[in-house]
Design a binder for these strands. Structure first.
Lengths: 188, 188
DNA sequence: CGACGCCTTGATAAATGTCAAACGTCGTGG
DNA sequence: CCACGACGTTTGACATTTATCAAGGCGTCG
């Protein structure tokens, strides 16, 4: 169990690298990504303080991973983990991937609302979310154009579901409205 | 290790049921599905002869599973599997889920082409695919409207990438063109 | 102050969804 | 044997959503 530090936008591992290590974030934020044949970038997930990433099916990484901000990680040898632990982590990843698929079948505002609620939950900083990632990162995670993400956010602000004191600070003014949006009970 | 048979459109297990068993298809075809809060149906995957399904994160099923045609399965107790086997299966599922996410970020024709190529590979019946599932099933798997799936198929037929001797029989007349489509090198 | 990166906004085009109708196939019953 | 009806599929017209292209604003850091 070793520790390492990375500046912003540094690559921690690349797709194709052997997947021998897991990483636990001490401070900072990380995204995993891959570029499809068509040239589209997919962001598999975002990982925040206290979260674990780097676990992948097979011996090699399919996704690359890059830091978003300056990041300190604990490096954990995969071989040092009991298979029951591995199984648990795999469960978690699988569920994440399945939910991501579901998310990608939603409309733009549903995706954005879902994303915000999830982020708020994971950051648990009382109604206000400080996003580490750029709009483009969010767009590539949600499968939307960056302009659509931006427009959707201002739309949510207009309906006073959220407030945007700064572009990366988001106040969940009305989480219930967001949840309702996710449940699709209202069409606009 | 037991064996069971189901008529078409029978439910094998439901979301929420304890996930104590895996199923190996002897003959037939199965789909796993769930319905989101918004009422959209998502089909997680299709499973064909020889394939294994029913493995899910956690103790309960998240997806339901239904037969598509008459189906015979081998029922396998999860507890009877070595954790290394479980891990392998989980790997496989995880990769499937990740690829599904990628698919859902593609355009309609890319999704359909990808789907056809994958099906052809799994059925390996020499250039011709006999699809067990309905257009609606395909649509709910690809995250498209049924009409879009239908239109895309006739479009592919017009470009003589495929032939449609019957609605559920598809001849891959030009797999290279399909692959090219998937790689996004041509816009229409 | 100025330049750069990121974000937003606007105008327009393209893709996809929705609603509706027609078509084909297949099985049933007259 | 044929007519009918049910169901899945296709096609058409149109509405809506989202992407694309282009410009402008805003904040930060030199």
């Amino acid at each position: 169990v070793n520790t390492r530090s990375f500046p912003p936008d540094a690559q921690i591992y690349r797709a194709g690298d052997p997947a021998n290590y897991l990483y636990k974030i001490v401070t900072g934020a990380v995204r995993t990504s891959r570029v499809s044949l068509e040239g589209r970038r997919q962001i598999g997930g975002f990982f925040l303080s206290g979260e674990l990433f780097g676990l992948e099916p097979g011996a090699q990484h399919i996704f690359s991973s890059e830091t978003i901000s300056e990041t300190h990680v604990l490096v954990i040898e995969r071989t040092g983990l009991a298979s029951s632990e591995l199984l648990d982590l795999m469960h978690h990843e699988l569920r994440r991937a399945q939910n991501h698929s579901l998310l990608l079948m939603m409309t733009a505002s549903e995706r954005v609302a879902t994303f915000l609620l999830e982020m708020a939950e994971r950051i648990h900083s009382g109604g206000e979310v400080q996003l580490p990632m750029s709009r483009l990162d969010i767009a590539d995670h949600l499968g939307l154009a960056i302009e659509t993400v931006s427009r959707t956010l201002t739309e949510l602000e207009k309906h006073s579901a959220i407030a945007l004191p700064a572009s990366r600070r988001i106040v969940l003014r009305n989480p219930a409205a967001l949840k309702q949006l996710v449940s699709g009970n209202q069409r606009r």
